[in-house]
Design a protein around this nucleic acid. Structure first.
Lengths: 301, 301
DNA sequence: TGAAGGTTATGAATTTGATTCATATAACTT
DNA sequence: AAGTTATATGAATCAAATTCATAACCTTCA
């Protein structure tokens, strides 16, 4: 027996309408098409699904069994179809995020909090395991959004600017470098540099200053949490380079100073990388707006 | 989105096979047909269900949602199809019975007990409400079997003989009629006749003796249970006419006598009425055999 | 009982949807 | 860059579904 959803809908329509002609109207086909159709189903099933010795015809006991199945299965199909309509309309979907920027948790978590209120049907997740090779994962649809400061010219991938920030040098107030107006690459030569535990080429201090100037810090110490980095810096256990929004947040504590990198400072920009077909989804656009709003807030502090 | 079971099977086959060509083999269609098919589903859904930037292709997040639905719904469809195969093969089905013969419960219940052991998948029920107008109900598929002693020449309805029985006169041993060799219609004139609570034209004593002889008993008292009828008869509160299998069962009790109706006795035959298309279903044939076997047993007592 | 009205069935023609065939395109590996 | 593997594409073909027109059947009423 080759049963399809369509057949279940037919059975239900006939039962609910109490006749073939009315059901045909409901299904937007002719009575004749419906007659042929039920004959086809019966031929396949090998049993009579309708009793025709009364007028209008009605379901046989076998037909009633099919009706029972229809009443179980069709709501599941309707829910699935509604869900896909939501997907198409952008009301639902998946938003799995990979973050190349380790410090971005500081602004992203409040953003996602706000986002969830507006888009309860969107499946949100942060995928820490995909921070490495985030852009290939985006292409393979393993994530849906990558937060990155390194735009690339990739077909099928859009980089939407979020906001600009400045990576700044952070040292204890008593540190000798604290008296300078700005920091140069060579200033790092005798220092213990404290960083997040990521590939050094993905840290601004290396990509924008040290690597181009072929300078190596004395030692590098990796620390997971921003607060711990600042604690170690304040107690002169090392120096750090952090996004300005990070140190702006804890500006009340004056145990350390912040200095620009280079005379003119360095400005970096954060981007949201999305697949081209999804950039304009309403929920995606809303997340980007929320991210920019949070950035303005951070810069007011 | 016009989703069918077929589409769910396609999604599942692709996922399980890990590629389009292998899935096509599994589904017994060409790779090309499958490619067209998934393109068709995607066009309808309005979202991409597959990620093609890898080889072999794999399900997108939307596709995974469809797979989840497939894994829920397809087992339900498979069960339904298996059930219909059982129906066609006669392993399952419905057996709703209407009994025109009120005393037939005495042999039918043990028959059905045995039947259930052999045919656990057959839906068995006795429909007391349909005893009146049982044959029209059979035609309309409201019941599937009618036990009747009145065969009719009805197109589409088979009457299969079950067994013969004799309706016998029952009276207290001390009753004056107890001394006769047989009973005639006029013998009922001064008597209280105790019957089952059914239409008098459906009682053998009326249809075979009293009505043709234009005899009316003094009074008629209707009683539901056979055991109560026999009690009242034994205590000389009236007389009765019952099928011989009924009084044969309780023959140890000698407070009453049984006498044939007329000099030569009256023989009646019980029939199983079924719809012509269903008479030869294995479970139906088995029930008829069991009924006959039970009758032999009753006649041995 | 015959007529009228309502309902479903049927067959040929037509339309629509699915599949095949042959080949192009894309992804991956060496 | 070449070769292999995997999927996509378009035209042709086939199969399934639907329509149109009408036949057949059932129920009710006078």
């Amino acid at each position: 027996m080759h049963i399809e959803f369509r057949h279940l809908r037919t059975i239900k329509a006939i039962h609910d309408s109490g006749g073939l002609a009315r059901a045909a109207d409901q299904l937007n086909i002719t009575q004749s098409a419906l007659s042929h159709q039920i004959k086809g189903i019966e031929d396949q099933a090998g049993v009579e699904l309708f009793v025709r010795r009364s007028k209008p015809l009605k379901l046989s006991s076998s037909g009633m069994r099919l009706l029972a199945a229809a009443e179980t299965i069709l709501p599941q199909v309707a829910a699935l179809e509604a869900e896909f309509e939501g997907l198409v309309a952008g009301k639902s979907g998946r938003l799995h995020i990979a973050i190349e920027c380790h410090a971005c948790f500081e602004w992203l978590l409040p953003v996602l909090e706000e986002f969830r209120k507006a888009w309860p049907d969107v499946d949100v997740d942060i995928r820490p395991g995909l921070a490495f090779d985030a852009l290939p994962a985006l292409r393979k649809e393993e994530v849906d959004l990558v937060i990155s400061s390194d735009p690339e010219d990739l077909p099928g991938t859009d980089f939407t600017p979020l906001f600009d920030y400045e990576p700044v040098f952070v040292a204890a107030s008593s540190h000798p470098l604290a008296q300078k107006a700005f920091i140069e690459a060579k200033d790092f030569e005798g220092e213990t540099l404290i960083t997040y535990p990521v590939d050094r080429e993905r840290l601004d201090v290396f990509s924008q200053l040290l690597t181009p100037n072929k300078v190596e810090p004395k030692t590098i110490r990796q620390v997971e949490l921003t607060a711990v980095i600042l604690l170690l810096v304040a107690s002169n256990r090392g120096v750090a380079v952090l996004p300005d929004w990070v140190v702006r947040q804890v500006r009340y504590n004056s145990d350390y100073v912040t200095l620009p990198l280079t005379e003119t400072g360095i400005t970096r920009r954060l981007y949201a990388a999305t697949r081209t077909g999804e950039t304009n989804l309403p929920f995606m656009a809303h997340l980007i707006r929320l991210a920019r709003k949070e950035a303005v807030k951070l810069q007011r502090n």
